[in-house]
């Protein structure tokens, strides 16, 4: 995948280093003023809200009731952990993340291999294929909820009636499944696009040789293409994980977390606690948990990306 920069990167990078070193005594280039705005802003963006979340997580603080104040100790965390809603929301989050990733990666890698073969109108088909990724989440959620899945007027309901079946109220009967369908529709194009790009960088001759040796498309996929995509797959998994952990708009627009807590993931739970129940302390405690979870993922992602980073 990064064959070209890998070979060219080494000498180039060290050359740049040598030049910098050579220049520095001559009062050459001061990069600090160039870096400072970015680094400074991101530092503030990272530290200030984080510190505030941590602080609030140990406070008794309700926006509606100023009489509640003072330190809460670890009570916010204690209530949170005793609250069945937290565990449930974590389970919902995990189901969404694991389910959507599994589906999009499996279908995405197969489709990448299919699209990698030449066929008529490949460019147009690819454009249609990746389109859902660029649709804003509120639009995708509403198109699915209303136009397609609505139990009375939706397209699927109409088709069901035409073939003599009773329409299903998808968002009441399979709330989590319905949301996952929307998410897969949004994220399959992403997985596909990344994996397809990874496949494109592959040496055609290797595939030719395999084909001449009588390998079938399936053999080639499993033994050559899949290993080639391994790194792209791991990066896709981690980036999808980051985004899927914080799914919000799709739930907000379709089920608002319900029925009951059926589709309340951790993100939605925090939103409910903070902006609907105005419980700042409790929401912040849940926020701390979300940050810890995301950090575990981000640790691996950063490591993975860092391994390939040539400076």
């Amino acid at each position: 995948m990064s064959a070209t920069p890998m070979t060219a990167g080494g000498p180039q990078a060290s050359g740049a280093q040598a030049r910098t070193a050579k220049k520095r005594p001559g009062g050459g280039v001061k990069t600090f003023p160039l870096m400072a705005p970015s680094v400074g802003l991101l530092l503030i963006w990272m530290i200030v809200p984080l510190a505030m979340t941590l602080y609030f997580a140990f406070r008794r603080y309700n926006l509606l009731n100023p009489m509640i104040h003072g330190w809460a100790g670890i009570n916010n965390f204690k209530y949170l952990i005793e609250d069945p809603a937290l565990l449930h929301s974590l389970v919902v989050s995990v189901i969404i993340v694991v389910g959507v990733i599994a589906i999009t990666i499996v279908l995405g890698s197969i489709l990448a291999a299919v699209f990698n073969m030449p066929f008529f109108g490949q460019g147009v088909a690819r454009v249609l294929m990746i389109s859902p990724f660029f649709v804003m989440p509120t639009v995708s959620a509403l198109v699915w909820k209303n136009l397609l899945l609505d139990p009375v007027d939706g397209l699927l309901a109409a088709i069901f009636r035409m073939v003599g079946l009773r329409p299903i109220a998808w968002f009441s009967v399979f709330p989590l499944g319905s949301i996952m369908v929307i998410l897969c529709w949004e994220w399959l194009p992403y997985a596909f696009l990344i994996l397809f790009t990874a496949l494109q960088s592959m040496d055609e001759e290797q595939l030719e040789a395999a084909r001449l040796d009588g390998a079938t498309a399936v053999d080639i996929f499993i033994n050559i293409q899949l290993p080639h995509m391994a790194r792209a797959i791991s990066v896709t998994i981690m980036i999808e994980m980051i985004f899927l952990l914080s799914v919000f708009a799709e739930i907000y627009v379709t089920t608002a977390g319900g029925p009951g807590y059926a589709t309340t993931n951790l993100t939605f739970l925090i939103y409910q606690r903070a902006l609907l129940a105005f419980n700042v302390g409790g929401a912040s405690a849940a926020g701390v948990i979300a940050i810890i979870l995301a950090n575990i993922v981000s640790f691996f992602l950063t490591k993975n990306v860092g391994k390939r980073l040539e400076v």
């Binding site: 979340t53 952990l245 993100t267 925090i270 939103y271 912040s284 940050i291 995301a294 950063t302």
Partner: peptide, 18 residues
Amino acid sequence: LLWMLSTKMLPAVGVLVP
């Protein structure tokens, strides 16, 4: 660079309240 990448990983909802 890697630190910048890691700030992107901070879940928005974790800092919603502040």
